[in-house]
Measured scan of single mutants.
Amino acid sequence: TEEYEYTDEQQAREAAREWREKGYTVTIEEHNGRWRVKTG
């Protein structure tokens, strides 16, 4: 599992979409105004 943090929701969603296209399972969670994208 890798985790990436973004301050911008749009960036987080874009990144998540790219990971999904590569076949990863992706979770996005908002935490204190930051967006965490977890792949695994």
Rank of each mutant, 00 (worst) to 15 (best):
N32V: 03
T39W: 15
T39R: 15
T25A: 09
E14M: 09
T1N: 12
R36P: 00
E5H: 08
I28R: 01
T1M: 13
K22W: 05
N32G: 09
A16V: 07
T39F: 15
V26F: 02
E21I: 07
I28P: 01
G33H: 11
G33F: 03
R34W: 06
G40M: 15
T25V: 12
E21W: 04
R20S: 09
T7Q: 12
N32A: 06
Y24M: 06
E21Q: 09
E14R: 11
K38Y: 10
T7F: 12
A15R: 07
K22R: 11
E30V: 10
R36V: 15
H31R: 11
E9K: 05
E3R: 07
R13N: 09
E21N: 10
Y6D: 01
V26E: 01
Q10A: 13
E14G: 05
E3K: 06
I28S: 01
G33I: 01
R20D: 04
A15T: 05
A12W: 01
R13C: 08
A12F: 01
Q11N: 07
E30L: 13
G40Q: 15
R36A: 06
A12L: 02
R20I: 13
Q10F: 12
E5N: 07
R36F: 15
D8V: 05
Q10R: 12
D8F: 05
T25Q: 11
A15S: 07
R13E: 10
D8W: 04
E21L: 10
V26G: 01
R34E: 04
R34V: 13
E5F: 15
Y24E: 03
E2W: 15
N32P: 02
E18P: 03
R17T: 07
W19C: 04
Q11M: 11
R13F: 10
E5T: 10
T39V: 15
Y4T: 07
E14F: 05
A16H: 03
A15P: 00
Q11D: 11
A15N: 04
A12D: 00
G33W: 02
W35T: 00
Q11A: 14
Q10L: 12
T25H: 13
G33M: 03
G33Q: 04
T27F: 09
T25R: 09
T39I: 15
W19I: 04
E30N: 09
V37W: 02
T39M: 14
R17Q: 11
